[in-house]
Design a protein around this nucleic acid. Structure first.
Lengths: 238, 238
DNA sequence: CGAGCTTCGATTGCGTTCAATCATCCTGTA
DNA sequence: TACAGGATGATTGAACGCAATCGAAGCTCG
């Protein structure tokens, strides 16, 4: 086993912590949120396969921590819905069924539509230009067929629109859902025709945002996510 | 102090647990979710004032449990946003600022609008009739000016519409938000003219649902929550 | 007399340990 | 031979205790 301690890893899950960090100017140190972020990544990346039980002693040893902070992190993740806590049997990695994915996408649609309308109404020109830059960078990776980097920027754009709503809570919930869908959406974008269609939808998205046409943006986002459902439906089981 | 143990209390926070309990036919026993529900209630009811620090030893003694399960429960509640975990200082009850309430209501609007559309499209006649019964019962309490019971049914109706969407995740997030706003919305409905206006909006809601007019229902819900914002704006500080 | 530093008490963070529960395997009997 | 029952090992759930850190009071010095 790799005797790596947690301390080595960088804090990658600061997105939603930043939303309510206004009262604490700089989040001094992440104590055990490190562990939360780490386990969350392990689940999303597939290192902890869905449906499998989480052995506390074993995972704790791998992370170089004792069971107590690990259990606290598991409780936190359970609240996010990534794992289920079965009374006598511990934590099991939650499997996303087809219905789960549909439900998550539906909520994502509601949130992004609302965010899109707000963004068109209140975002500054500079902020919109920032999204445009993300889009252009994404198109670069599309031209090079760099799927991983393309996808990262794709998610960043959606997150940016959610953030442009000016609604921190919306952005936070949006981020949580997007993380949970990350793996499935990535797998679902296989195939050049699917990919090019998604790109076209993104073009329309940016156009609507720059035109500050909230209704059009909401419509495009809704349609985009409806087609995302079509794209991922084959990837997810049951 | 009251030396009451946790075991006496009934489990009141089973709402969102039920959403994903399909795999576990009967949720055998709630081990520490009891504690989560208890603390959540204490916060919402105001027994733990907002902004105050939570003393682990003290609260643990009051609940009759040791610090370990209490800390796990606090981590869970932190993920819901009810409390903030400050690294060296423990847990503090989160204060809902005006911006927070606005953000929460905005997300609630997006969710309920979406749910309303879905409900009109897919709910059975029996389910709609069930909501009507809730509404009629609520009107009874309105006639008697029983504000507490009125308000309970008011929330139940909104939850029912969220559930009628057929989207378990949406219903869960909706419930979480509604719980967080419970106290403020209750305080905000003071005054007879505010109250009667809210009742009228509810009438329109039920009418749109029974007519299965999804767009109308979404509009009414949006308007209802916008006016809710007006009603509560004086109650919440900053 | 006020400000900065130091020390001390209190509280949190985490590791360790004990009790309860669950799963598996073995044994005995029909 | 197959099934039922019990016993044992493993794993979770909760309590305890120690070390680190935070806040505050007291002391010293300018």
């Amino acid at each position: 086993m790799s005797g790596s301690s947690v301390v080595e890893g960088e804090a990658q899950a600061e997105v939603q912590a930043g939303a309510q960090a206004a009262v604490l100017p700089v989040s001094r140190r992440t104590l055990h949120d490190e562990v939360v972020g780490r386990i969350r990544d392990m689940i999303i990346e597939g290192h902890l396969p869905t449906g499998s039980r989480i052995h506390e002693g074993q995972l704790g040893a791998r992370l170089g921590i004792s069971r107590t902070p690990l259990r606290e992190a598991l409780k936190f993740l359970a609240s996010e819905g990534l794992i289920d806590l079965v009374p006598g049997r511990g934590a099991v990695v939650r499997t996303l069924t087809r219905v789960d994915v549909r439900d998550l996408l539906e909520v994502l649609t509601a949130l992004e539509s609302s965010a899109g309308r707000s963004a068109c109404a209140r975002a500054s020109e500079a902020e919109i230009a920032g999204v445009r830059r993300l889009h252009d960078a994404m198109m670069e990776f599309y031209a090079r067929r760099d799927r991983l980097e393309y996808y990262k920027l794709n998610q960043a754009i959606h997150s940016a629109i959610a953030a442009l709503s000016g609604n921190a809570y919306l952005a936070q919930v949006h981020e949580t859902i997007q993380q949970r869908l990350r793996r499935i959406r990535f797998l679902g974008n296989q195939g050049p025709e699917k990919w090019s269609a998604a790109v076209a939808e993104h073009e329309a998205m940016i156009a609507a945002l720059e035109a500050r046409d909230g209704e059009a943006l909401a419509t495009v986002l809704t349609e985009h996510l409806r087609r995302t459902w079509d794209r991922v439906i084959d990837v997810v089981e049951p």
